[in-house]
Structure formats: structure tokens, C-alpha cells
């Protein structure tokens, strides 16, 4: 563990910036998201869960796949410096590991390089993640349902704790150790500082909600796929897609061309399974024409199909969808309802 006095935080961020394009939580017009910073003063150090998730650093809402014109196709140059992220919460670090299983390592087709996403890998592969302990979890946090916790370090390179006057930094990966190992602005942490961290951790853990047992979720959801409960649950959903855009693990996208004359670019843009056009085919046939089918798809994808395909849930319990839903459709209630659902005339409770 190392100690970084807040008086030297700006120096630290500038040092980081020499080697890395550094992203951190930034507040713009009242909303928070991750943006490039070159000084500590730009960073919103108070925000817990940013409005927009850090997935947009590695999987931007709109991204050029290649440019085309009279001279054929050209892919963009790879950015020169790797990416560092400061102030990313453990739930969001885990979401990046999940997305890496979809895009980067492509766990469904691990031996075949054609299924590895080069755009994701350029960014995520060489990134350095400074995770932040959540010393004051919010009422919408439920990461502990998925094995997470306010002091969980999975996937981080360096784990950091805001201890008031200073930050405590703990290297988690070799890459993290290598970067912070020789920094002059850091000092080794002492006994009292470590005790303080333990006290903060215990206090944070006590604020987490009761865990929901999700061991049987995948099977249970498959079993009730055809039950009427989905119609009831989806009745108030307006299919706005807000949950999918703020979600740190939703990764559906569309590919479109933007042209001016004979020049243009092919872009990958975020899309949403909540929109009817998402699956509509040219013939007019639509496999998920009903709102019920789309809501069910989102839940099944996150809590059932993902287990089969990636070995884990595609949800980290960050609570963003709970906060943004305009009709207060709370994913925690939806899950509880489904997991405890008893089909009429059946005993599969």
C-alpha cells in the first residue's frame, strides 16, 4: 500500500498523463461521465456511480470502423498512447472484464482470431485501471448480488481508497505495480493507515443490501420463458432504451455508413434491444415485435443466456438502470419477482 497525499494528486495525474490518455469522472452540465483529464482539478472526485458508464471509453457510442473513398478502404491509425482510467468503481471494472469476454477474448470462439474485436482490443488490451473503493454505497447499489462488493478489486490494476486527507493505493496487477512502484509522489503506507482502510471497508460493507440468491437464476428464467408473468412485468415499459444506454454491460450495436459525396465512413453505433426495428427484417418479419418479447430478451440475455455463453451474468448491480428508468421499472424487483415466480398449477418454486 502506498499513500498519495491529496496535495500531490495533481502531480500524480500529470505524471500519469505523460504515458497514458487519462480518463476520470468529469461533471459537464450537471451530468457525470468519463472524459480525458490533464489535471486533478477537472476530476469529480465525489461522484459514486457516474451517469454514463465507462464502457464508452472502450466501446464509444459512435466509432469509425473504417473510411472509404475513391482510393478504397482505410482503417484509422491506432492512438499512440494507451488508456488509463482513474476513479472507476469496482462494478464498472467488472463490467469491462465482462465486455472483454464478448469483444476481446471472444470466449464463444476463443481459437479463431476473426472473432476478436480489434477496436476493443486496441483500447482495453493495454489499459491501466485505477479502481476506487466505494466508501459510501448508494441505496441503488446491489453489486453484492453478483459477487461484487464496495472493496472488490477484481480486474483492477491499482486499487485506491479515498481516506480523507490522502489516497491509499494498492497495486493489484503487475502492470499496476510497475507504474506506481517508483513514483516519488507516493510514500509507503503505515500501520495506522491500513487500520483506517479496514474500518472504512467494514462500514461500507454494512451498507450493502441483502443478497439475492441467483444460483438458480439461469435455469429458473428458462423454465418460465413462456409464462404470462413477462406481460405483466413489461406492461409499463415504454421501450425508451435508457437502461441499455447507461448500462455498463449492454453491448448491442448497429453498423451504418455516413457519406458525403464519394467519401465516407462506416460507423459502429450503440443500438438497443428495446427498439422494435432492432430485429425487424427486410421482409417485414420481426422475431421480437412485442414489447414483452424485448423486455424478456433483455432479462434473459443478462441473467440466463450470458451464463451459457460467457460463464457469468451480464450485470454488475451498478444500479444505473434503476436510477434512469422513467417508469420506475426496478430491475431488482423484476428479478425478485421472476425468481420467486410460481407457475400456476406447477410446483417449481
Amino acid at each position: 500500500m502506498y499513500r498519495l497525499d491529496k496535495g500531490r494528486f495533481d502531480e500524480f495525474i500529470r505524471l500519469l498523463g505523460r504515458e497514458y490518455r487519462t480518463y476520470a469522472p468529469v461533471r459537464t452540465a450537471g451530468r457525470t461521465g468519463f472524459a480525458i483529464v490533464d489535471s486533478a482539478g477537472m476530476i469529480d472526485t465525489d461522484v459514486l456511480v457516474t451517469d454514463m458508464s465507462p464502457k464508452e471509453i472502450f466501446f464509444p457510442p459512435s466509432e469509425t470502423l473504417f473510411r472509404y473513398g475513391r482510393n478504397g478502404i482505410k482503417t484509422d491509425e491506432v492512438p499512440e498512447r494507451p488508456i488509463a482510467v482513474w476513479g472507476i468503481r469496482s462494478c464498472d471494472v467488472r463490467s469491462l472484464s465482462m465486455l472483454d469476454r464478448v469483444f476481446g477474448s471472444a470466449v464463444q470462439m476463443p481459437e479463431d482470431d476473426r472473432f476478436k474485436d480489434p477496436y476493443w482490443n486496441h483500447r482495453y488490451g493495454s489499459s491501466l485501471l485505477f479502481g476506487s473503493a466505494c466508501i459510501d454505497p448508494s441505496p441503488t447499489c446491489f453489486c453484492n448480488w453478483f459477487g461484487g462488493g464496495p472493496f472488490n478489486k477484481d480486474g483492477m490494476d491499482v486499487f485506491t481508497v479515498d481516506a480523507g486527507e490522502y489516497y491509499l493505493l494498492e497495486p493489484v496487477s503487475g502492470k499496476g505495480q510497475e507504474f506506481i512502484g517508483g513514483l516519488a509522489c507516493l510514500a509507503p503506507a503505515g500501520e495506522s493507515e491500513l487500520d483506517l482502510v479496514s474500518a472504512i471497508a467494514a462500514e461500507a460493507a454494512s451498507r450493502m443490501p441483502e443478497e439475492e440468491d441467483l444460483k438458480e437464476a439461469g435455469r429458473k428464467l428458462s423454465d418460465i420463458f413462456d409464462e404470462p408473468v413477462w406481460s405483466e412485468l413489461s406492461a409499463k415499459c415504454v421501450n425508451c432504451g435508457a437502461c441499455t444506454f447507461c448500462c455498463p454491460t449492454c453491448h448491442c450495436f448497429d453498423i451504418q455508413d455516413e457519406s458525403q459525396g464519394s467519401e465516407g465512413r462506416r460507423v459502429r453505433i450503440w443500438d438497443s434491444c428495446m427498439f422494435p426495428i432492432f430485429t425487424r427484417e427486410a421482409s417485414g418479419h420481426n422475431p421480437r415485435a412485442l414489447s414483452k418479447e424485448r423486455v424478456r430478451q433483455r432479462i434473459m440475455h443478462k441473467y440466463s443466456y450470458s451464463l451459457e455463453n460467457y460463464g457469468e451474468f451480464l450485470c454488475t448491480g451498478c444500479g444505473r438502470c434503476v436510477l434512469v428508468c422513467p417508469v420506475n421499472l426496478d430491475i431488482r424487483d423484476v428479478l425478485r419477482r421472476l425468481l420467486h415466480y410460481r407457475a400456476e398449477g406447477k410446483c417449481n418454486g
Binding site: V102, Q108, C252, F253, I255, D271, H285, Q297, H301, S304
Partner: peptide, 24 residues
Amino acid sequence: LERRMKCGIGKCGRCNIGSRYVCI
């Protein structure tokens, strides 16, 4: 089977039937 495959490599999320992707 036919779905509206887009990326063709199991990522864009629109061609699944249950847990299976029609494209891969």
C-alpha cells in the same frame, strides 16, 4: 434460420434465438 444478422461475429446482439446466435 434467418435473422437480421449485422456483425456476423456474435457481438451486435440482434440475431439470437434464445442463447444461440444465428450468425455463429
